[in-house]
Design a protein around this nucleic acid. Structure first.
Length: 749
RNA sequence: GGAUUUGUAGCUCAGCUGGUUAGAGCGUUCGAUUCACAUUCGAAAGGUCAGAGGUUCGAAUCCUCUCAAGUCCACCA
């Protein structure tokens, strides 16, 4: 053995050895109890980052349970990550001076597909690099045909059960990315804005002054609203306002949502472009005239048509000033929602979208947490999740993306329905118009379908599900795709249903869902709701285990824009995957964020070296004891307790205690404590004291005891530091088989 | 505005189902060794556990409040 442990020579070789021996597959322990973890699928197009490196926690659990003799399955997969990936791809297009509007829908989809395929192997290689014992024979991708088919079936089932509906309502729309977003996908940003006080003339005489931050949307006003108890305005309720610039007449209405203290106490109501106003509009049965289009440009105002929001605001204010209707401008702190990808200010726009009724699903989910069918670690996150569930609104699952699973719905085209369609024809020209007219003009139906960018329709959709079989021209397919989380929200279900026969029956419900605490809402909450729905109330996993974020050495969040991202693979190359793994769990309680630390990594690297040298000492002892025999041929004397040195008997007891402790810690997801105790015992108890002591004696019994005790420690440490322990184990005189499949201390074969 | 997390040695963090002298890594000081250890071993210094109050025989650990930092959620136009 070399004087120093060299992880570069070991890690790749060992991983191959494990994989060749089929040890990652649950079938290695055919008789064992099922123990299942589904890997949170990383973006197929992405790179491994520290968030993924924290999956080491899952590997610890899987390796531990494999050693316990369980049929342990850790199922890998990747996610298509709809908006994310399309965003990245469009950026690439932009660099080439193109945009997605230069391609038909289908072309774009295939281009992204190819792009993802090119990069897809990367993440898998990287997961292997960290020693993750994933069962690659069961790997899945969210756009695998069988997965897609199941996801569509789920949608259909939910539709038929009345859990899904289509509705015309305001969505968070990014005019730049050309898609809507769920509430979760928006970022609220505080901004210095201006509150404008605008005088609206009253038909019966006088003025009422409204306060607004968005004067330009006044073209979409349908009412002015005051508080019913407001003495200033009480007598005005029911009167009519003549909207400036357009002279449209709108009523003054009363509603309690108005805060008398804020602004002037009078509010303009613009139901198509403001969420609160939309609610008011519904309640008071007002109309919803949209004045901003999908591109973010104004339309149907007769005044600022074709202008973007900023210009429209300027122009509107100018015109109001000319008429002396702008009473006052005051600075005002406001919160705007921006796109989490491109940071554009989101526009609330009315759109026909598919929604999931969350109430019934939430009720089941809450019950499962209440009854502890699902337990969350650390525990306090259960409260957070409860709170979130209780305030959850219906879930918009429509995305106007190409990269994703198309919503499997066809609409019947009837004469009453007018479709505004835009598409690229064979000559590459952009065509827009009413569908029926375009067909009359001789456009090819296939062309329209392929190039369909968006169907804007207000209609009672007659929904048809005949998947892919509809060729009749009277049906028009939905062009929207599912929110990525709608498919990944079914992940434990759809993966196990499509891997190997019997997998679902054996491995569902899964044992643990371990993931970053930042996607508790996005993902975990949805998996609980959808998973329970799809399996008649069976929870998708029994325990949820959440890890925190890994920040840079200064404790700042790693981000590309800050340029402080550290690549975990480079760390693994430098310190060894084992040291990296150990550093991530050592000294950090589960669920807490941590700052990555180079001194800690260095300390853990030294620990691997310490282990190596403990093994060298054993080799050294063996050479002295059995000078004639090849190390591999040594038959170790099986330890008879009675023959042992009194001292050794005590050490054996200590090891029993340690084994029990480590098991308990892992069972309780207290990985940091397990790691700390192992580190401390192995180094500062066993190496510093026992080995120092045993140096003075060298007989067969002592040697046997030494080997046996060291092996116990290798086993206990293996889930945390799999490579170095495996390598050493195989060098131990008289060892048997692989450490990865050895039995955990105290467990019988 | 609500929720939530964190505040412990110079630095990074454990410990917090309450119980003997509060721990680790790195750093610092002193000594030993090169005998398995590109080192390692032994020893030491360093903390009124953010602050105040309370519960208790006993609190870093439970409760209340205050201060500070962070995160998430929220329709104040």
């Amino acid at each position: 053995m070399d004087k120093v442990y060299n992880h570069q020579d070991v890690e790749e070789k060992i991983y191959e050895q494990w994989e060749k021996a089929g040890t990652f597959q649950p079938e290695i322990n055919p008789q064992g109890k099922p123990y299942t973890i589904i890997l949170p699928p990383p973006n197929a197009n992405g790179d491994l980052h520290f968030g993924h490196a924290m999956f080491v926690v899952e590997d610890i659990l899987i390796r531990y349970h494999r050693m316990l003799g369980d049929s342990a399955l850790w199922l890998p997969g990747t996610d298509h990550a709809g908006t994310e990936t399309q965003f990245v791809f469009e950026k690439k297009l932009q660099e080439q001076g193109k945009s997605r509007f230069d391609f038909t829908r289908e072309d774009l989809y295939h281009k992204i597909w190819d792009y993802v395929q090119e990069n897809r192997g990367g993440i898998e290689k990287q997961l292997r690099r960290l020693g993750f014992s994933l069962d690659w024979s069961r790997q899945k991708f969210t756009l695998d045909a069988d997965i897609v088919s199941l996801v569509k079936q789920s949608f259909k089932k939910m539709y038929e059960d009345g859990l899904i509906y289509r509705d015309y309502r305001l969505v968070n729309y990014c005019t730049r990315d050309g898609t809507s977003f769920s509430d979760l996908e928006t970022i609220s940003e505080e901004k210095e804005g201006i509150l404008y006080h605008i005088k609206y003339p009253i038909k019966e005489g006088g003025f009422i002054t409204v306060a607004t931050t968005r004067p330009e949307t006044m073209f979409g006003d349908v009412a002015v609203m005051v508080h019913p108890e407001d003495a200033r305005y009480k007598q005005l309720i029911g009167k009519t306002v003549v909207l400036p610039l357009t002279n449209r007449e709108i009523p003054i209405i009363a509603d309690e949502t108005v805060d008398k203290e804020f602004g002037t106490g009078a509010v303009k109501v613009t139901p198509s472009h403001d969420f609160t106003d939309y609610e008011v509009g519904r309640k008071h049965e007002l109309t919803f005239p949209p004045v901003i289009g999908w591109s973010g440009k104004f339309e149907k105002t007769g005044v600022v048509d074709g202008f973007y929001v900023k210009q429209a605001r300027q122009k509107t204010l100018e015109l109001l000033k000319e008429q002396n209707l702008l009473e006052k401008e005051e600075p005002h702190k406001m919160v705007v929602k921006i796109c989490y990808k491109c940071k554009t200010v989101l526009e609330p726009l009315p759109l026909e979208q598919w929604y999931i009724k969350v109430k019934p699903l939430v009720a089941k989910a809450l019950e499962s947490i209440e009854k502890q069918e699902i337990e969350i670690f650390p525990k306090n996150f259960a409260q957070t999740l409860n709170f979130w569930y209780n305030n959850l609104k219906d879930w918009n699952i429509s995305r106007q993306n190409v990269w994703g699973i198309q919503i499997p719905v066809w609409y019947e085209v009837t004469d009453e329905n007018l479709f505004a369609v835009s598409f690229i024809d064979k000559q590459g020209n952009l065509k827009q118009g009413i569908l029926a007219d375009l067909l009359k003009e001789g456009s090819e139906w296939e062309e329209i379908l392929a190039g369909l960018q968006r169907v804007i329709a207000r209609m009672e959709a007659k929904v048809v599900f005949e998947d892919n079989k509809i060729e009749d021209k009277k049906y028009l397919p939905e062009t929207d795709t599912f929110d990525t989380w709608f498919s990944s929200g079914q992940w434990p279900y759809v993966t196990l249903k499509t891997t190997k026969a019997g997998d679902f029956e054996k491995f569902y419900p899964t044992s643990v869902m371990e993931t970053g605490r930042d996607i508790l809402f996005f993902w975990v909450s949805r998996m609980i709701m959808l998973g329970m729905y799809l399996t008649n109330g069976q929870v998708p996993f029994k325990n949820v285990v959440l890890h925190g974020l890994v920040n840079d050495p200064l404790g700042k969040k790693m981000s590309k824009s800050k340029g402080n991202v550290v690549n975990p693979l480079e760390v693994a190359d430098q310190y060894g995957a084992d040291a990296l793994r150990f550093a991530l769990v050592y000294g950090n309680a589960l669920g807490n964020d941590q700052a990555m630390s180079y001194p800690k990594l260095e300390a853990m690297r030294k620990f691997t070296n310490k282990l190596w040298n403990m093994a060298r000492f054993i080799e050294f002892q063996a050479r002295n004891l059995y000078p004639q025999i090849d190390l591999n041929q040594i038959e170790r004397k099986v330890v008879e307790v009675n023959n042992l040195h009194a001292n050794d008997q005590e050490w054996l007891k200590k090891l029993d205690v340690l084994s029990q402790e480590i098991s308990n810690y892992i069972d309780a997801y207290q990985f940091n404590l397990a790691a700390e105790h192992l580190y401390d015992f192995i180094w500062h108890e066993f190496a510093d004291k026992y080995i120092e002591d045993v140096k003075t004696r060298n007989d067969e019994d002592s040697f046997g005891a030494l080997c046996q005790m060291f092996e116990v420690q290798l086993k206990l440490l293996h889930p945390f530091m799999p490579f170095v322990t495996e390598e050493i184990y195989q060098k131990m005189p008289g060892h048997q088989g692989l450490l990865i499949t050895a039995r955990w201390p105290g467990v019988r074969e």
